[in-house]
């Protein structure tokens, strides 16, 4: 059990779960505020999602120590996807 608690993936899991609860609360806080779009909340949600995805790719999928082509591909995929989502949302 001690080795599980010490494992880096355990720290990552705690971090990811905390972010999820954070975005849950962020969404829930704005549930009663009508249906108006909220760019600040959306940008925050997308940033948290991007952090979570990168953590999963780097630590759970072990891309952190993978060959460069894989690190570059996954980083570009995430950057292009999140930028496109935000740009389409804003314009």
């Amino acid at each position: 059990m001690r080795s599980i608690a010490r494992a880096r993936v355990t720290q990552v899991w705690i971090f990811l779960s905390s972010i999820t609860v954070g975005s849950w609360m962020l969404g829930a806080t704005h549930e009663g505020s009508g249906i108006a779009p909220n760019a600040a909340v959306t940008a925050g949600i997308l940033a948290l999602a991007a952090i979570k995805v990168r953590c999963i790719i780097h630590y759970f999928m072990e891309v952190r120590t993978a060959p460069e082509w894989l690190r570059v591909f996954t980083d570009y995929w995430l950057q292009v996807l999140m930028s496109a989502i935000l740009l389409i949302y804003l314009y």
Binding site: N38, V41, I45, A49
Partner: peptide, 12 residues
């Protein structure tokens, strides 16, 4: 799922 959750459930 992390991306789906953000886009479908939480985004405003």
């Amino acid at each position: 799922w992390v991306v789906i959750f953000a886009l479908l459930y939480v985004m405003r």
